[in-house]
């Protein structure tokens, strides 16, 4: 088994005059939870459509499990598009069996798998309900089952939590984690970076068709740290404190957010505070959020 379930190498996709994907390369390791991030219109959906073989790349190469992407692979991929869609007039059971058969499952096999999922969500009695009779949240659950029922090795979820209430968001998050523990690789695609920060181990950030950033979430945040610290203390800050080594960004009753000036380090800051007999209750480095990093990097040049 290849180390990477997915490898993109210099992938280019052009539509008419504009280039939707412009030489993007990244790897997704087996068993990882991976974030494909970027603002609206960055090229995420175009990339996903190439990976799911909906469209072909104009240039570059995509490897699935070490093999060149081919028509056998889609049955190992589960894809939930951003725009959800099901046949409104079809019954839940029929519809899921149909979609499972298109994924290459046998009818008995698919029926067992679907019934398993329905009972997991405690909605067995929906089998004969038409999609149009279900609420939007209920439809999302069916859509999720349709995405995962064939036990895909790679799960691609495009904005999976949009339109979900907090209860269902957690439900789906738990299911995703469990599928991951069972060996599935997950690719999240979203423009809401705070949503995936806590789940994703690795990310790639794209903007205007180009890769801006990739790597481990923790590493990235460390690399982009700006030497900011949050200091909790008792009392108030003496007005005549030396500000040679730092700058106060935010000052509130019992904590400060402090920016350490270049050429100095946080120990000097602590030293200064301790020397003035300030009673420190907490001391923590502030790492930037992916959102902040992203905004910093693209400098508001995105379409958003």
């Amino acid at each position: 088994m290849a180390e990477n379930i997915l490898r993109l190498d210099q992938v280019v996709k052009r539509y008419h005059k504009h280039t939707a994907v412009d030489g993007v390369s990244f790897d997704v390791g087996v068993g990882k939870i991976f974030g494909l991030l970027g603002p609206n219109g960055a090229g995420k959906t175009s990339l996903i459509r190439i990976i799911t073989t909906i469209t072909g790349a104009d240039e570059g190469e995509v490897l699935f499990n070490g093999e060149k992407l081919n028509s056998n692979h889609p049955s190992q991929i589960g894809y939930m598009p951003e725009e959800r869609g099901l046949y409104k007039k079809m019954k839940v059971g029929e519809q899921l069996i149909y979609l499972a058969q298109l994924k290459g499952m046998g009818s008995k096999e698919s029926e067992a798998a679907i019934k398993g999922w329905l009972s997991k969500f405690e909605i067995e009695d929906w089998w004969n309900k038409k999609i149009e009779e279900l609420s939007k949240g209920m439809q999302q659950k069916i859509q999720f089952i349709a995405t995962v029922m064939h036990r895909p090795k790679l799960l691609i979820l495009d904005e999976p939590f949009s339109g979900l209430d907090p209860v269902n968001t957690n439900l789906i998050k738990d299911e995703i984690r469990q599928l991951n523990e069972e060996g599935a690789t997950i690719v999240f695609s979203t423009h809401r970076m705070e949503q995936v920060e806590e789940i994703c181990e690795e990310i790639v950030l794209i903007n205007q068709g180009k890769k801006v950033l990739e790597g481990n979430v923790g590493d990235i945040r460390n690399n982009f740290k700006q030497n900011r610290f949050m200091v909790g203390f008792e009392g108030s800050l003496p007005a005549d404190i030396s500000r040679e080594t730092f700058e106060v960004i935010e000052d509130s009753d019992n904590h400060l957010i402090i920016q350490v000036k270049e050429g100095h380090n946080s120990n000097e800051l602590l030293q200064t505070l301790i020397n003035r007999k300030i009673n420190i209750t907490s001391y923590q480095e502030i790492l930037p959020s992916l959102n902040e990093i992203f905004i910093n990097l693209v400098d508001g040049k995105s379409d958003e």
Binding site: T52, T53, I54, S71, Y79, M80, P81, L99, L102, A146
Partner: peptide, 17 residues
């Protein structure tokens, strides 16, 4: 039109041509 407008086409085209 129905398949296109309710977007199921994207799910289906990820499994068939």
């Amino acid at each position: 039109m129905e398949e296109k407008i309710n977007r199921i086409v994207e799910v289906i085209i990820s499994s068939v041509k």
